Amino acid sequence: MKNDSLEHIQSQERLLDQQLEESVYEEKKLRHLQEENEEFFFKTNQVFDGVLEQFSQNQFAWYLEDQLAGLRHDHQRLQFAFEEEFQEQKQQRQSIEEQQNDLAFERVRLQSQVEKMEVQP
């Protein structure tokens, strides 16, 4: 009975290890997407600034300024979404780590009980 419980705990620990690895991988992917977004925004912002400088005395400057403002708004919205996702990933990882700690404690407790039963005549 105790061995079945230990095996179950070890199975759960392996599952949580896998979930933690997946969470770390997802966070790395998210960071990469955030970096790509930053690079794209920077390059696009430079292009808009250059074009706006060329057309500053033109009647279409307002249109470019409006487009640039839209780009900045979209960038801020994406940054907010990234931060929300990072927080969610952090909470998920913390939950997994707490479950791992609980299972490790339970495993040690069961192992000590098994050892005590084996020592007793």
Rank of each mutant, 00 (worst) to 15 (best):
M1F: 03
K2A: 12
N3I: 12
D4Y: 09
S5L: 14
L6R: 12
H8R: 15
I9N: 10
Q10Y: 09
S11K: 07
Q12Y: 03
E13W: 03
L16R: 07
D17Q: 15
D17R: 10
D17E: 13
Q18A: 10
Q19R: 14
Q19I: 03
Q19Y: 10
L20N: 15
E22K: 07
E22R: 11
E22P: 04
Y25F: 15
E27I: 02
E27G: 03
E27D: 04
K28D: 10
K28E: 13
K29F: 02
H32W: 06
L33D: 08
Q34M: 13
E35F: 05
E36I: 07
E36Q: 11
E36V: 14
E36G: 06
N37F: 04
E38S: 14
E38K: 11
E38L: 15
E38I: 15
E38F: 06
E39C: 10
F40T: 14
F41H: 11
F42Q: 10
K43M: 06
K43Y: 06
T44E: 11
Q46G: 02
Q46P: 01
V47L: 13
V47N: 12
V47E: 06
L52Y: 03
L52Q: 14
E53A: 11
E53L: 05
F55K: 14
F55P: 01
Q57C: 08
Q57Y: 05
N58Y: 07
N58M: 02
A61G: 05
A61P: 01
A61V: 09
A61D: 08
W62V: 15
W62A: 13
Y63H: 04
E65A: 08
D66T: 09
Q67N: 10
A69K: 14
A69M: 05
G70M: 08
H73L: 07
D74H: 08
H75R: 11
Q76A: 15
L78R: 12
L78H: 01
Q79F: 00
Q79E: 11
A81H: 02
E83N: 04
E83H: 06
F86H: 08
F86P: 00
F86E: 04
E88H: 03
E88I: 00
Q89L: 05
K90A: 15
K90Q: 13
Q91N: 14
Q91S: 11
Q92A: 06
Q92T: 15
S95D: 07
S95F: 12
I96S: 01
E97G: 01
E98K: 15
E98N: 09
E98F: 04
E98A: 14
E98I: 03
Q100Y: 02
Q100A: 05
N101R: 12
L103F: 05
L103S: 03
L103W: 01
L103P: 00
V108F: 02
R109V: 00
L110A: 00
L110H: 00
Q111C: 01
Q111L: 10
V114D: 00
V114A: 04
V114Q: 09
K116V: 07
E118C: 05
P121F: 08
P121K: 14
P121S: 11
P121V: 07
P121I: 02
